[in-house]
Amino acid sequence: MSPKNSRAPLWPRWLLAGPLAALCAALIMAGGALWLPRGAAGIDNLVLPILAFPAIWAVLFFYACLTRHLRRAYALLLALLLAHALALGLQLS
């Protein structure tokens, strides 16, 4: 992406910004039900993640597209992804 590494293949970035960011956003939304506070009416943990889904995806997408530290971005997104997948797996099992 940057002039310095313009010859680097593009697919790792698009893999991160495309399917991984979408999957990560979906898992953060679903997993949010488990760790978000329930709020005054006891519904915030269910409502807020659905409301925030477009914003979560957009932040992850732009971060993945623009970051110069692709490895760090992979590490962060995979960590978020695995943590939520694990929490959801435990909840659903």
């Binding site: 709020g39 005054a40 009416a41 519904i43 915030d44 807020l48």
Partner: peptide, 18 residues
Amino acid sequence: KPVLGLRPSLGGALADLM
């Protein structure tokens, strides 16, 4: 009552705005 929840809440208020 709000549309969502039995009492006012952040989630309910934001959902109401959509």
